[in-house]
Simulated scan of single mutants.
Amino acid sequence: MNGTYRAIRLEKTAPSFREGCVIRDVPLTQPGDGQLRVRNLYCGINGIFDTQIARNSVDYVTITLPTYTGVEALGQVEAVGPGVTGLAVGDAVVTTRFTGGYREANIGPAGDFLKVPSTDPDWLALCSTGVSAMVALDVIGELKAGETVGISAAAGGLGHFLVQIAAQRGCHVVAVCGGAQKAAFVRSLGAARVIDYTAEDVRAVLDADYHNALDVAVDTVSGAIHDAFLANLANHGRLVVGGAAADLNGKPEIVSGPRIANAIYYKGASVRGFMNGLMTAHWPAAREKLFALYNEGRIKVHFDDPRYHGLESVFDGVERLLSGASSGKVIVDLETAR
C-alpha cells in the first residue's frame, strides 16, 4: 500500500451516500498497544444504513464530520501490537464495527475483530448478516420448531438467512419478495409459500391462506407488508421489526389507521423491535449455532450477482442494494488493483 491506504470518508450530510463521501488516502501506521492492523479483503454493503448515515438520520449513531464509513469487513492480520494475545499475523478476522468497513486497511482494538477459519467471504456474511438472522429469530422472535413464519425481503442478505434457518427448524415459511427470479431463489432455500408482491397482493394472500396464522413474522420493509403481517398474527404471535426500508426518507411513520392495540390485544400477540447492535451478548451463542449449520452444509451463503471490485465500487454496491434488485448478500472485493 506504499505507506497509505484508501478509505471512504463522509464529509458532508447529503441525500445519498455517494454525494456525501470522498475516497481519502490515510497513513498506514503500526498498531499500538492492544491493537491490530488488518488488510481488508472484502466489505459488506449496508445500503440503507449508509444512506441514513449520510443524511445524519440514524438516531442511535452520533457522528461528527468528517467520519469514516462502513461496518462489515473481512481481512487478514498484517501486524499485531503489544499486549495482543490469541491473534497472529496471517489470521483471518471479521469486524462489524462502524467505520471499519469501507477501507482497504483497518487499525483498531483487537477486541473489535473476530478470528474466523479462513478469508473465504462466506465468513463475512455469516458473522454479520447470518448472526443477525439467528438472533432475530431465536432471541427476539423466540422461534419454535414447526411454527408458521412470515419473512419480508426474503431474497435479500438478511432474508435468505432467515428463510434457511426457519426451514431448518421445520417451520412453514411464507416468504415475500419481488419478481419471478427472486421467487424461484427463495423457493430453493426452503420457503413453503412465496408471495411475489409484483404479481400478488400480500395482504389478500395472507388474509385468505394464513388468516391469524403467523406465529412469527420478521419485517424489514414496513408499510403495507408490515400491516399485512400484523393483521395476520396468530394467538401469541410475534412480529419482529428489523428495519423500515419503505421509510428510507428518514421521516417517522404516520399513524393513519387503528392503533396497534387493536391488532395485538385480543390475540396476546406482540410487536418487538430488533436492533442487532443492542444484542451483542447473544452473538457468541448465535455464531455457534449458525457455524454448526454452515459446517454441516445445512446453511449456504449466497452473494448477489454482479460482484463488485475495488473500493470505488462501494458506491455502486450501495445503489444496487437500494434498487431492490439484489438477491443474497452484497459485498465488495477490495483486493482489485487501483
Rank of each mutant, 00 (worst) to 15 (best):
Y42I: 00
L36P: 01
V80C: 07
L28G: 00
V26M: 08
R39E: 05
S128F: 12
A79S: 12
P109V: 02
E72D: 15
W123V: 04
P121R: 02
V77E: 04
N106P: 00
I48Y: 08
G86Q: 07
P31R: 03
V58Y: 04
D122L: 06
P82L: 09
A105E: 03
N106I: 00
I45S: 04
T69R: 09
R39T: 02
V58G: 08
E72H: 09
I53K: 11
S57P: 00
L74P: 02
G111I: 05
G130A: 13
G70S: 11
T85G: 11
L87N: 02
D59L: 04
G111V: 05
E72K: 04
D25G: 00
F113G: 03
N106W: 07
G81F: 10
I53S: 10
Q52T: 09
E104T: 00
P82G: 07
A54L: 13
A73K: 02
D33E: 14
V116L: 10
V38S: 01
G111H: 10
V93R: 04
A125G: 12
V61T: 09
T29F: 02
T51N: 13
D59W: 01
G108K: 08
D59G: 12
T129N: 15
V89K: 14
G86C: 05
Y42Q: 01
Q30R: 06
Q76C: 07
A110L: 04
F113I: 04
A54H: 12
V77F: 03
T129Y: 06
G111F: 10
A105D: 01
D25W: 00
T129L: 15
T51Q: 13
R103M: 04
L124P: 06
G34H: 05
C127F: 12
V80Y: 12
G47H: 09
Y102I: 11
A79K: 04
Q76L: 02
E72T: 04
L28K: 02
D91R: 04
V80S: 08
S118L: 10
V26T: 05
R97W: 13
F49M: 15
V77Y: 04
L36G: 03
C127Y: 14
A110N: 04
V94L: 07
L41G: 00
P121I: 03
F98Q: 14
C43Y: 01
R97V: 15
